[in-house]
Design a protein around this nucleic acid. Sequence first.
RNA 1: GGACCCUUAGCUCAGUUGGUUAGAGCGCUUCCUUGACAUGGAAGAGGUCACAGAUUCGAGUUCUGUAGGGUCCACCA
Length: 912
Amino acid sequence: MPEITKSYEARNVEAKWYAAWQEAGCFAGKAAEGQETYTIVIPPPNVTGILHMGHVLNNTLQDALIRRARLEGKAALWVPGTDHAGIATQTMVEKHLKKEEGTSRHELGREKFLERVWDWRHEKGDKILRQLRELGCSCDWDRTHFTMDEGYSRSVRTAFVSLFEKGQIYRGKRMVNWCPVSKTALSDEEVEMRPTKGHIWRLRYELVEPVGELTHIVLETTRPETIAADVAVAVHPRDERFKDLVGKKVWRPLGERVQIPVIADEAVEMEFGGGALKVTPAHDKVDFEIGQRHGLEVIECIDADGTLNELAGAEIAGMERFAGRKKAVEVLEANGSLIEAKPYENNVGYSQRAGVPIEPRLMQQWWLRYPRVEEAKQVVREGHVQMHPARWSKVYLNWLDNIQDWCISRQLWWGHRIPVWYAKGLDKETLTEADLRDPAKIHVSLDGPADPENWDQEEDVLDTWASSWLWPMGTLGWPDADEQKQANFDAFYPTTTLATGADIIFFWVARMIMAGLEFARPGEPVERRIPFRHVYFNGIVRDKQGRKMSKTLGNSPDPLDLIERYGADGLRFGLLQIAPLGQDVKFDEGRIEGGKNFCNKLWNACRFRTMSGEMSDNRTLAAILDRLDGDQMDEDDHAILAALLDTMDTLEKSFAEFEFATATQRLYGFFWNEFCDWYVEVAKTRVQDPAAKQHALAVQDLVIRQFLLLFEPFAPFISEELWHVMGYGREGKFLQDNRLETAETLAASLTDAGCAVDASASTRVEQLQTFTTLARQLKAEQSVAQKRDVTFQLQASDEAWTMVEPHLAKLVRLIGTESITHTAEEPSLPAVVSPFGTLYLDTGIKVDPAAERARLNKELTQVEKHIGGTQARLANEAFVSKAPPAVIEGARKQLTDLEAKREEIRRLLNTL
RNA sequence: GGACCCUUAGCUCAGUUGGUUAGAGCGCUUCCUUGACAUGGAAGAGGUCACAGAUUCGAGUUCUGUAGGGUCCACCA
């Protein structure tokens, strides 16, 4: 028998078992012919990222799902990997280069710079994957993928080429969200609207020729620095105030002194500002559209880096855009155009990553018309892809309903370079749709043209999400037939569950669905093409004040530190206990500590079991069942086994519903309260009885065994350790090599073993528990809680006494008394009314009648209050005639019981 | 402007299809180091379930509205 330490030391076992699992290839995703599979692809973290609490939650959930699937006998595969994270990684390396070497990517040049990024990736990357091992994640590490690996890159290019050939991809000059810091275009999804405090300036634009009384038009703007790029002033066509002005000209108040027309356009809000709008097509999306409708010129006065150029006007040219804004206001004030400056808060689009306002800009970019939009809606509407919680479907469908073409090109270097080659000398700015489809001018292919010397490859790379949207397929070998075979694409696709955060439902989830439908198994039914069947959205981990955890706030605990202090299992279990379906998680370190304490409780329960008696053959369930003795089955056995079956049932349901908090809470309550606090305590007595000992210990062995199987998905390390300590495992075998019985099959096995579980015993055990609590309560009230030399007398009917008598030995021990005797007398002693009769406590000290009366009166008041309520209900004619009979019956019985109790308390009061 | 979520004990949260006296963990009070566990045990205090209506014999639970908090989408310059 191995020596078991007094408390559970996670560090002693975690590394050991992880190494053993890996050595034995426990995590390999292998599917036998016809075997049911369970596949998860990890949401690939940034390759240079480090583990934070969000990852812990997300990956613990996935690991729980995967480990449970293994125990259910499915071929489980969890594919790990990382994302190259274009902007984030490139920015990180650029910063590093600037700080450490004072150089920049432009100084290095594309090739050298990319070498440096690769160095960085090899040196610092994948740290997060190693950290996931600390957490116990059972990924199939041999299948680790990286979005920039050659194989994966090939799938990215394949998708691009295919979509290009289908005409879904085009190059076009349109308004894009330009990030002046990262110096790249962004998709709409990467722009975050933030309320921003600033000013709005009320300005006058002088009419070239007065119209009647009118000498100028009043309008308001938040962006005076762009005035020099104004090409018109727009008013609403039905606005009476301006009907005579349309077609007239005004002087542009900044920059070159030119006349611009007043035009009428529906897009103008009459109620806003003065009812007129300055039109700056180059720097505003709406203005651009107006400009298109009216054939207006586009003047760009802001450059790519966010500085104002010479077209912005001599006064502000060369200035940074916000400094230029200030200066522009001064100029406007000086030339009499400024009427008023008002503090103003409006929504400004920010680059999500760089955190600066984006600049709408007119540019040539690559665009994708999303494929399979209708199918993508259909699969969710029809439940082929189920979202949990379901409400996210609505968000998803709403987005697809309003979907816009996706700007997929990025002006970065770190990423998948777009597989498009331009014939040398071709003017890329003036390409037409026909040019795009002309193989003499544009070459699009996986591997490039045969005569590269005559071509220039596109400089831009793809949006990171235009690679990760292929993740479930690319990691399973698509599109290469051999690789797919090797990865067993056939068996593992579609994946089963995607666990991720709702914040990337558009970025990633929706796009993966469209990609899957477009590329996977062409021609087959949608349910074979979708990338996953379930999407589980886990909440965001927040701090105690409800704020998102972030590096800048410094409010995020270091998961590795938490693992160090509470063990990986404690962290996992504690976190899942507070992670309700679809709600954010407010991080509470107390719960993590609770997880650790629970592990310790489990540890000690097992330790106690090994101390209670010789360990017998625990190697199989059958061996344990063999040791059960039907003749020794008492109510406590029935109750604990019924609770075990119920727990198994609850776990099965909660896994199906992704209700992890329910699952962990049931496990906690079952093991700690039902098993340790009651069953193990009562069994202490039975273990003293040679006739009952083997049976009572076998029940414990059974309960612990089944519990470990249920617990392992949440806490794999301690479960594995105890599995071996308790002798459930064999040399070279692991917990996961066993199958998890269902509640039904275990119940059937118990029946076969002559120990059919009678769930109704639970009620009677509850009465014994109540009895115990009342007796302890009485002792505490009489200030003899710790004394064991007191005696109890139970005044009970013969029938009630027969219910208590078989349990006397246990009760005496649990309550801490010398004896409980059956009495017909009515002693003058402190008493309490129990389910079995009136229980008297003899402490050997004289009773204080006043104190006793006070105590009983308090009790009486409570009972009477309750009686009142119940009587009122039963007196209600409507209740009696309409409520279901069972409910009425329950109320009647309750009333009878309460009245009996009341009488007994009154009688006791009279004896004082 | 559109959609969604939340509000239950001091704190963090459970409360299944409406049905006895609303639960857990932490914290708090009292007692206990008795031979699994002080990372523990026993007992206890603590809640008008945000508010107002409606439906119902009966509402924490269903519906409507209000207030407060949060999220997403749209973006009036």
